[in-house]
Simulated assay, not measured.
Amino acid sequence: MQNPQPDLRSHEADVGGIRMRWDERGSGIPVVLVHGIPTSPQLWRKVMPLVDGARLMAWEMVGYGHSIPEGRGHDISVRAQAGYLLEWLDAQGLDRVVLVGHDLGGGVVQIAALRHPERCQGLLLTNAIGYDSWPIPSVKMLRAAGGLVRRLPAGMIKAGIFRMLMARGHDDAQVARESLALHSAPYAEHGAGEALARQVRSLEVNDTRVVAGELPTLAGVPARVVWGAADQFQKIEYGERFARDLDAPLERIEGGKHFTPEDHPDRIAAALGALLREVSERASSQP
């Protein structure tokens, strides 16, 4: 497949003894994009080329994508990922950033923003976990069958579990097939069954439930909520709740499902562009 981002740069750095990686393009306002399960920074591959005036950094969660090996022996819960993200921001000298999150990544950026609201210039959530919306039933089943999942060969995980998630989570069948091949590859390389079992074992709803009441404190931060209204995993009602708590506009993608950055990159990029303009206007109006 032709690289849609010829100017994309991949980076790695040791942060607190963990090898962290991210993809980067552009310059301007720093924007950090965080993926979910079972994806990687490649989730944002169609969004990043559509956004100008920003330094876009798609950060890879510890224990996911090509960083699957780094998950061994480390806490890879959503709460812990927020800590890793903040440590990575420190290591990169990034004091204030716009945070963008999808699925688990949405939970990560919520927690990071609440821990250090002064560092969050803007916030965009798209089909993100939050409140008590997760883990979804299929993931709960995988966690209950952790011993079996660990022994499953990569081919069976791709053809069964991942194919089902992609089929149910995409409204564009062609993109679903492309994404299945793309996102399953790191699992095949790094021990699919063990990696997936470790990931689902780390998911704890209290990570977002305990901070849910604090979300309205971020209402002064420029924010956008973009939601695939037909998502079977993270229902539109949660998007509506985020919009109320963050005092943010909600953009509904009618017919859109879960993997909005892949199926509807233009809508995500447009919302991010509007958010960046608001962030820039606020910064220029400050004395």
Rank of each mutant, 00 (worst) to 15 (best):
K235T: 13
D14F: 11
Y187F: 14
H258P: 03
L272D: 01
V175G: 05
R25N: 07
P30L: 12
V205S: 14
A283H: 12
T260L: 12
E237S: 14
A243R: 03
I161C: 01
A181N: 10
A167D: 14
P216D: 08
R96Q: 13
A80T: 10
A82C: 05
G26E: 00
L86R: 08
V15M: 04
G106C: 02
G36S: 05
P135C: 08
G213D: 15
E70R: 07
A269H: 09
V200F: 07
I136V: 15
E204N: 15
V34I: 14
V109H: 03
E254R: 15
G239Y: 10
V210R: 13
P49Y: 04
L123I: 11
I18W: 07
A58P: 02
H35S: 11
P6I: 10
E251L: 02
L152K: 01
V149S: 02
L246Q: 03
Q5F: 10
V139C: 13
L86P: 01
V175M: 13
R119P: 00
R168M: 14
L218D: 02
R55M: 07
S133Q: 11
M166H: 11
A112H: 05
A270H: 10
D247S: 13
R244K: 15
V175Q: 14
N127D: 15
D263Y: 00
R119M: 02
H35T: 10
I37S: 12
A181L: 09
G130H: 09
E70H: 10
H74V: 06
G193D: 06
P216V: 10
V31G: 07
L125F: 10
P261E: 01
V175N: 12
V139A: 14
I76D: 09
M48V: 13
T217A: 15
R19V: 06
A173T: 14
A229K: 07
V109Y: 03
G101M: 01
